[in-house]
Design a binder for these strands. Sequence first.
DNA 1: TTGTAAGCGTTATCAC
DNA 2: GTGATAACGCTTACAA
Lengths: 346, 346
Amino acid sequence: LPPNRRVTSQDVARLAGVSRTTVSLVLNNVSGPQISADTRQRVVQAAQDLGYVPDAAAQALASRRSQIIGIILVRSPQQVASDAFLNHMLAGLIDTVQKRGMRLLIDIVAQEHQEQAYLELVRAKRIDGLILAGPSFDDRALVALEQQSFPTVLIGELPGVGFASVDVDNRAAAHMAAAHLISLGHTRIACITNAQPSYAAAVERLRGYQEALYSAGLDFDPRLVRYGDFDPASGYKAMHSLLSDTPRPSAVFVASDTVALGALAAIREAHLQVPEDISLVGYDDIPFALYTHPPLTTIHLPAADLGRKAGELLFRLIRHETPDAWHVRLNTYLVVRQSCGALPGS
Amino acid sequence: LPPNRRVTSQDVARLAGVSRTTVSLVLNNVSGPQISADTRQRVVQAAQDLGYVPDAAAQALASRRSQIIGIILVRSPQQVASDAFLNHMLAGLIDTVQKRGMRLLIDIVAQEHQEQAYLELVRAKRIDGLILAGPSFDDRALVALEQQSFPTVLIGELPGVGFASVDVDNRAAAHMAAAHLISLGHTRIACITNAQPSYAAAVERLRGYQEALYSAGLDFDPRLVRYGDFDPASGYKAMHSLLSDTPRPSAVFVASDTVALGALAAIREAHLQVPEDISLVGYDDIPFALYTHPPLTTIHLPAADLGRKAGELLFRLIRHETPDAWHVRLNTYLVVRQSCGALPGS
DNA sequence: TTGTAAGCGTTATCAC
DNA sequence: GTGATAACGCTTACAA
């Protein structure tokens, strides 16, 4: 025998004095057949002695399950760079995946390549389930997945399609943010979105802001809206433009902390004070929001939970269990720090 | 025939009127045997017509290559959360991996579980190559990889072991940062590290700072050193402690932008000004460094390139090519913004 | 309770 | 140039 050969289940079987079948049954804890405690022990011992690790490819080929789940992040390089959120979500997801003894395959693709990216993964049976995180999805491509009912979970906005999803209620959260400013007496409240209006989440947040105004009997003035683009630079630009409006807004809801950092810089550059001259509410509660100047009042998003829930939901689907809910909505809440003040004279 | 059966290479062969062997040869562009252009064309066409996608598990089992590379991030959940760097590196790595038609399997593990995490991946032949990113590695476990010369690349500090690695010269970079402060006339310069001294990178950066002092003929005063711990909170605490020293340092090198954000907050809280009262140099050049108040002078690290280079190096190893260099050192440079001022009277 | 044997869908080694 | 045929290492009916 070649000395450095791979240890196979055959070797384990031989050492334990049983068949490969038994080895497989024991090591996979198959529930059907009862294995005597003695046999089980011998097999486990033999496997350990030999340092046996099953070959993943062989296992996948025979069992038709790869024990890998895939996550596809539909994002531009620029977004990846400034997404202080991603880490958290990934950490939550990986945590869940590990607990199930599975692995995570990750891919970042541009909007226009998403289809080929996940179809290959699925068709090659490389993954047992798929998590899609991105702004929007190409319906045409998703149809294929839906037809073969491939286990899939969306993180983000819910399109009309029938996929399971995990998200926060962006509209309600934005409503909460704007309502906070209104409660402080502000009436001229601007909005800088997190992204361009082609992104569903951006539209939802804008709508929440709008609804908060209406609920309070305030007018919605489209001239007070600017579109951010994921990064601080876009927030800087948007705020700069907003500050040249007259009369100046006394408060701004910035639908992304990252974008808000740029907005803060623009305000400082104009020699204005937060919150004395302008109140600001952010969105996301990134770790840095506590350390801006001043600390940013913002909407807290449960990033890690988003990843965790998506993972749990997906595992249910993979095991053909009916999930408690096909569309999970996680809670957000307002974190009051020091970037908002009452409107003078209110 | 069952209507919804998987399309196999057998089907392609049948449609093209050739054998499975030929299909494999054509689709994998095997160089040895010459296939006639006509046959090649027929096979390609048939594969496309049928929407054939090779089964990943079967391919892996037969070819002994999974086409997956693994990255293991050795980090605590806390570090993952505040690591504004990770995204960049991952994006760079994924970019490289995609170009090679491979996939990336990602895992985050705590220091104490690293061994089992990557040994399973390697032993199960789940991955063709491994990238390890973390503060330090358990030599005992790495020995196994080294012995079977499993393609492995380290991102980070270079231990004594013989693995290929990609890193920046932390010491030289820190030297540069401290030298900048010295050039502005500062003599009482403190240092807040990025992490505890158990982390090699933290020690290297501290040493670079120290060497810069010596080079300038300044004394190294250990009482001016504080240890950060990855997050802004640790920077806040460290700076707070530093500010109660007398005489106060006139400048601080903070070996992590993330930690520096906390330090900035502590300085503001003490009603001091940057750079008027205290100069600050950071490290990493995270996207937010440009938007702090004031914009942070810092050391730029090529995060995405780190990922890219690690990927390229790894592919060389996988293909048994001798790499140009086993230890790649990427360049850093000082980005001068507005957090440093000349010492009054110098 | 355990063993036998038939796949799983490729790749790779030879002949032809 | 192309086609049999044997691995690859495991899971899983089914048989004993």
